[in-house]
């Protein structure tokens, strides 16, 4: 639970940094540009893509562990009932 909130905060600040990086890039001088002039945009694009994957993977993993927990509980319940029938 607490770890979930920490992860959310990290992700949130990551998105904020990415957005700030991109908005800084718009102030770049117009004409005599160096090849590295758009580095904040490159950073923002990769940051967003990785964050997207990580958030989705995190969501899937949490769903998966929740379902597995439920399966384990039900299997225990089933064996308990079967035991009670035999006894």
């Amino acid at each position: 639970m607490h770890i979930g909130y920490v992860v959310r905060i990290i992700i949130g600040t990551g998105i904020l940094i990415a957005l700030l990086g991109a908005s800084d890039g718009t102030e770049i001088a117009t004409t005599n540009q160096s090849p590295e002039a758009n580095l904040p945009f490159l950073f923002a694009a990769f940051a967003v893509a990785w964050l997207g994957f990580i958030i989705y993977a995190w969501y899937l993993a949490s769903q998966h562990s929740r379902l597995r927990q439920e399966i384990a509980n039900m299997q225990k319940q089933l064996t308990d009932i079967q035991d009670s029938i035999e006894n």
Binding site: G25, N38, F41, A45, V48, A49, F53, Y56
Partner: peptide, 17 residues
């Protein structure tokens, strides 16, 4: 949906400069 979202966002970030 994840891939289209990311493609739209990265595309937008590339389009600006």
């Amino acid at each position: 949906l994840l891939f289209t979202t990311l493609a739209l966002v990265t595309g937008s970030i590339w389009a600006r400069p």
